[in-house]
Amino acid sequence: MLKKIRIDPFVIAIIISIVLAYVFPQPGASGSPVPMDLISSLGISFIFFFYGLSLSSVAIKNGLKNWKLHVSVQASTFVLFPLLIVPFFPLVRNTSYELLWLAFLFMAALPSTVSSSVVMVAMAKGNLPGAIFNASISGIIGIVLTPLWMMPFIKQTDVAFDFSTIYLQLISEIVIPLALGLVLRRFLGAWAQKHKRTLNKFDKLIILLIIYKSFVQSFEDNIFSSVGLLEMLSMLGLVIILFVVVYSLTGWIGKLLKFNPADQITNQFCGTKKSLVHGTVFSEALFGQTSMVGIMLLPLMFYHALQILIISAIATKKGKKWIETKEEHVNLKDSNTVEDHHIK
């Protein structure tokens, strides 16, 4: 009997946001009295402020010991992913597909997720401290590396980008709030942990708001007129292929480095994830002054839904296998104890 496939409520909320952007664009349209840019900017700053408050210093200190795992995860996130996309640039350069390719590179250059990586590693009985460390540090590394991957290719587009303004925005909206959160963590860290669910809901609300605003702008400028159903299906197919390739490669790398089963799980789960939170935030900084934002988020939103669906299924299977193995071990131990008693 086939199991019911559970769709993440957040994925449904994203779809609703896009539909609202199309049928009810007034609040996010140009000239709207609603200060959407200001709300988004403040929301982004609060996301990273709360992120700084929530970082676990204990997990980071403990995590530093397992350096092979961390190098593998971060290399997969920031090197392997982009290197799988970059070689195709000559094929799309100066064609109508260049913008879609740029959207794939943007997705590939993003940090790993935080909450879902940790939750799913825990479900699969992987190395949880390693997952917390890598998920946390990935977002900080991405502030530097994601724009660096994008800069050479953005410069070759027809759109003018002021990188001094982009980095100033990254510093003011992300780096400073993050640093402030880290400084105040000793005073407000317990409060952030206590209200973690509420803060996660706030993060998702801001993400949905940015997605709504981005798609309103893209619909307004008719940016999707060149993206047909065939391109959408092709994009989905490429996202699936990319996930399978990276998941397989991270598995092979884990075996090559002789990771134990727990580290192997963390390496594959954290090394294949991409963060929608950072994607929406970075898209605002990199493409906020253009109408490209909506289309730049398309592969990422496909990937976000796919990674949750596939990894959650794998995590559930591995978790059940771990429990069954443990039960077999306990039963075997009890059986041996009984036999020893009879012998005596």
Rank of each mutant, 00 (worst) to 15 (best):
T272V: 11
M151D: 02
V277D: 02
L2C: 05
M120R: 09
L233V: 12
R6C: 12
V23A: 11
G189H: 10
D37E: 12
T290D: 01
S335K: 14
V114H: 00
K204A: 09
S115F: 01
Q26M: 13
I310A: 15
S54P: 08
Q156N: 07
G228C: 06
L83V: 13
S291H: 11
A305N: 05
L306T: 06
L257M: 09
L199K: 12
V159K: 15
V71E: 04
S275P: 01
S72A: 15
K344L: 13
A315D: 04
L257N: 05
L170S: 04
A179Y: 03
F81W: 09
T290A: 05
L230F: 09
V71A: 13
I310K: 15
T272H: 12
L298I: 12
K318I: 06
V227F: 15
N94W: 12
M107E: 01
I143R: 04
G271D: 02
T325F: 13
V118Y: 03
D37G: 13
L306G: 03
Y167P: 05
I343E: 13
F282L: 12
S54M: 09
C270Y: 04
I12A: 14
E98L: 10
V293D: 01
A285S: 14
L286I: 02
F269G: 06
N134H: 10
K321W: 01
D340F: 14
S164G: 06
I253G: 12
S117A: 13
K318E: 06
L83D: 00
V244L: 15
I207T: 09
N267I: 01
T113P: 00
T337S: 07
E339S: 12
M235Q: 07
L42P: 00
I14C: 10
E98G: 05
I176P: 08
Q193Y: 05
T165E: 02
D263E: 14
I311R: 10
S335G: 09
P147L: 05
G28E: 04
T198N: 13
L20G: 11
K321H: 08
A192G: 01
I176G: 10
I18E: 02
F81L: 11
L276K: 08
L84G: 08
L69T: 04
M296Q: 03
L38P: 01
L298E: 04
M151P: 05
F49V: 02
S312E: 06
W67E: 00
I132V: 15
I295K: 13
E328H: 14
I140K: 06
N260F: 04
S57H: 11
K333Y: 07
W149C: 08
D8L: 10
A103M: 04
I143P: 07
P299S: 02
T77G: 05
I132P: 03
N336W: 11
F153T: 00
F243V: 02
I211L: 03
I12S: 12
F224E: 03
K274N: 00
T113F: 00
S136M: 08
